[in-house]
Design a binder for these strands. Structure first.
Lengths: 192, 192
DNA sequence: ACCTGAACACCGTTCAAGT
DNA sequence: ACCTGAACACCGTTCAAGT
């Protein structure tokens, strides 16, 4: 889990928690109990204080969810950085979605009304995709190619996590089929 | 809004609402206020009763959300039926997502813990896609092709609705680029 | 037979009072 | 300066009492 902030003030009584510990606890609760059960009470219990104390570190539940989304995107960007090519990158997205399905859904397909990460965090998570699709599609088509591959990967992973693939068949084969077709398609564009 | 059920019993006092009216009110509230604000109180107020009365028609909030998801898939299936080809179908998905973004997200990318429609409703919404992609990719590849196109369309629409396309560029052009590339890609498969 | 107010166990959030 | 219990306005849900 990425470090979000740190406090080291020396005060009469030492602090019993930190913004960092709160965000980490919220990330854990998100996966274990789902967004609806990510409550201020549950987070407080996990970090060892009472709910009202959380408001010394974070404005409220919505802001806490934003911080969780931003920590998730930071981690996703970190993993994406190590990708060797577009196929590898798509695979890393899928692996992340399976490890942390609730966080993945939170950042990639937040429902209307769900707090979302600030733009800079979303951009950070997409630069590697742009670089790698640019290698395939050429500079002029990098953005469209990135959108095509990202949309497909996000849709596939979301549907997989949501149990939308219920007609049988080999889901892993469908993934490989899809990546291959999409990468071919956006690579062809170079010849235009 | 599709009819979900109907009650016509003649009783001492005429019923003041119906399951149908409740589901319609819930669908409206979902779009206007978001899933988090789709409360039993709000639904009850809209149909003209108090919250406890709703429990005469529906087991609880989770079941009501399931019924909303199922009514949404029924409507989506109805619109899909009229599609002429895969490109047209993808366009109808996108139009539906823009008209009813919250319902679209609810059925296509429900977060962990969100109540979901029963299988039969999801299947009904995917038969047209299977038929049309089968025309392109051949019977043997219909399922994989349907998954590729559906995943891409769902991902694209979700990201568009969630405001994930913030790097500028022409989003409509990216849509047309994407459909064309994907349809080409899954059509090629026939030559295997 | 449906509808209701009251009640219960929860939420998020605020705030005066403790240390 | 942080932490807390109490309080407030909300939730979803149950149930006895009304009509």
């Amino acid at each position: 889990m990425a470090t979000v902030n740190s406090y080291t003030g020396s005060v009469p009584t030492p602090d019993r928690t930190s913004l960092d510990a709160i965000v980490v606890a919220a990330c854990e609760l998100l996966e274990e109990e789902g967004l609806a059960n990510l409550t201020m009470n549950a987070v407080a219990a996990r970090v060892g204080v009472r709910a009202p104390s959380l408001y010394k570190r974070v404005q409220g539940r919505d802001r806490l969810i934003e911080l969780v989304a931003e920590a998730t995107l930071t981690e996703l960007a970190r993993r994406a950085d190590a990708a060797e090519d577009a196929v590898d990158l798509a695979g890393r997205f899928r692996a992340f979605g399976r490890e942390r399905p609730a966080a993945f859904q939170l950042v990639m397909t937040p429902g209307p009304g769900t707090p979302t990460a600030r733009d800079e965090f979303r951009v950070a998570a997409s630069v590697t995709m742009l670089r790698l699709t640019g290698n395939l599609a050429g500079h002029d088509h990098a953005l469209e190619a990135a959108r095509t591959l990202t949309a497909w990967a996000v849709g596939f992973i979301s549907m997989e996590l949501g149990g939308s693939f219920r007609l049988g068949g080999d889901v892993d084969a469908a993934w490989r089929f899809g990546v291959e077709q999409i990468v071919d398609a956006i690579t062809v564009t170079r010849e235009d």
